[in-house]
């Protein structure tokens, strides 16, 4: 049966690991949002010098595994003198990865705002940038919050991969404690519990955000 005593005994380790997982998630989330927004705007730009690099980025990230991306950054980049700490290697890989998916989500949201909205704004003398900022993005936001939320939840779960580059987050914590307790079921269960806690918290927060972004009630 479940050995509750090891669970209670080792829960402080998991709590500490959950904080690290949360830190990695939140920083990657913010950087990934910036990457996603910039990439989406570039993909939609008429200038091919903006469009093609952004398309390449999205294609490259979406067609390769996150684990390989992580290894290239952590093990591969030092070959060229770019020696990032495990923490920042992890954050960079996760942010680049989620950013590509965010870019597609944001692009879709922007494109689903009716063309008439842009025409109305431009006919009032608003510049393209002003139209994007004041008219299109606020409307796109309402549409993209739910799918962005999915990307966030995936991001939190994907942080488990940084256990492979010595970051003692939830998954590696479980693995290490198994070495001394020989209780893999309890230890992985604890890790799973904290992941569920984090993802559920994120989902609830996003639900709140979603209802705040709804402006019309007809």
């Amino acid at each position: 049966m479940l050995d509750w005593s090891v669970i209670f005994h080792y829960s402080p380790f998991f709590l500490k690991a959950a904080v690290l997982t949360l830190q990695i998630s939140v920083i990657s989330l913010i950087v990934g949002l910036v990457f996603g927004l910039v990439a989406a705007l570039c993909v939609l730009a008429k200038n091919p010098l903006l469009q093609w690099p952004a398309r390449f980025y999205v294609w490259l990230i979406r067609s390769t595994p996150l684990l390989v991306q992580l290894f290239i950054i952590y093990f591969g980049f030092p070959q060229f003198g770019l020696d990032l700490s495990p923490f920042w290697s992890g954050v960079l890989a996760l942010a680049l990865n989620t950013g590509a998916y965010n870019a597609e989500t944001i692009r879709g949201g922007i494109q689903s705002v009716p063309a008439g909205q842009v025409e109305a704004a431009r006919s009032l003398g608003m510049s393209a940038a002003l139209t994007m900022r004041r008219i299109v993005l606020p409307q796109a936001l309402r549409l993209i919050i739910p799918p962005l939320g999915n990307n966030f939840v995936i991001l939190i779960k994907d942080t488990s991969l940084v256990s492979t580059i010595t970051l003692v987050e939830l998954t590696l914590t479980a693995q290490r404690l198994i070495g001394s307790t020989y209780k893999p079921f309890e230890m992985y269960l604890m890790a799973a519990f904290f992941y569920a806690l984090l993802t559920t918290g994120a989902t609830l927060l996003l639900k709140k955000l979603e209802s705040r972004a709804a402006w019309s009630h007809a």
């Binding site: 009716p114 008439g116 909205q117 025409e119 109305a120 704004a121 431009r122 006919s123 009032l124 003398g125 008219i135 606020p138 409307q139 309402r142 402006w215 019309s216």
Partner: peptide
């Protein structure tokens, strides 16, 4: 600038819903 001198009204209104 020139567009500010011409007001346009559309078939489908195109009011800003937000």
């Amino acid at each position: 600038r020139v567009r500010t001198h011409m007001g346009m009204v559309f078939q489908h209104f195109n009011l800003f819903p937000h």
